[in-house]
């Protein structure tokens, strides 16, 4: 799995992705302006509701990231393709970023709404635990140098982390029997739902851009590693 498969990796090309990056950032700004313009202040929450246009999309997309980590980790264990490992790692990093953002925005929303920065409710607590699990995942990647070992171990750690989420959620829910009832879109103002979905799509574009470019950087690094390894082992490389 080391030398033979290694040279099938190609240097990734940026292609039109920089343009997509500009589009994603501008689309996010546009989505936020639209949400501000069309949705009236909430009856109970007032302007605070506008925080949710960033908080909720970040939380949804965080879930997508962790799902990608689990899928590509399984795929790595199955096919042993280095690229799957790098995609899982990129998704984990972006997921952790969105996870941190979700937590901080949730706190900023909770302070004026509930009067406290933090409540030990099931969703909040399991989101925090997920953040810690994936901080551990990223630390594992940082502390293991050998690429094949790092890929295998982080695939396993990523899958175990994903399994852990529902268990943490259930146990914290039992621990704190009082929990907020999840609001369903049907009880909400239609402009609110539309704005929320628009912003979720905008964050999804940002996520795609981030993961793609992070993967590009990781793959370039990997190709460089292999080149210098080959150069150290036996002169100039022709592959």
């Amino acid at each position: 799995m080391t030398a033979a498969a290694a040279f099938t990796l190609e240097v990734p090309k940026s292609g039109r992705w920089p343009i997509f990056g500009w589009f994603a950032v501008l689309f996010l700004a546009g989505a936020q302006i639209t949400a501000f313009a069309i949705s009236p202040p909430d009856r109970d929450m007032g302007d605070l509701q506008k925080i949710l246009y960033v908080h909720v999309p970040a939380a949804w997309n965080m879930g997508i990231c962790y799902l990608l980590v689990a899928i590509y980790s399984f795929r790595y264990l199955w096919k042993r393709d280095d690229r799957d490992d790098l995609i899982a790692a990129s998704a984990a990093e972006v997921g952790t970023l969105l996870n941190g953002l979700t937590l901080v925005l949730g706190m900023i929303w909770a302070r004026p709404t509930w009067g406290v920065w933090w409540v030990w409710d099931a969703r909040l607590t399991s989101t925090l635990i997920m953040f810690l699990v994936f901080a551990g995942y990223l630390a594992l990647r940082a502390f293991v140098e050998e690429p094949d070992r790092r890929a295998l171990w982080s695939a396993v750690a990523g899958i175990m982390g994903a399994i852990n989420y529902p268990i943490v959620y259930m146990s914290v829910r039992w621990w704190r029997t009082i929990h907020q009832v999840q609001s369903t879109p049907s009880t909400l103002d239609p402009t609110y739902t539309f704005s929320l979905r628009l912003n979720a799509v905008a964050v999804l574009f940002i996520l795609i851009y981030f993961i793609r470019r992070r993967y590009e950087a990781a793959l370039t690094e990997r190709v460089t590693e292999q080149l210098s390894q080959a150069a150290a082992l036996g002169g100039p490389l022709h592959a």
């Binding site: 810690l132 551990g136 995942y137 630390a139 594992l140 502390f143 293991v144 750690a157 268990i167 146990s171």
Partner: peptide, 22 residues
């Protein structure tokens, strides 16, 4: 995993404790 990595003293609790929450 942790005992065969660098910095095993930090890595094991970091990986293990969040998983042990439930």
């Amino acid at each position: 995993m942790a005992s065969r990595s660098r910095a095993r003293e930090v890595l094991l609790p970091l990986l293990l404790f969040p998983m042990l929450v439930p």
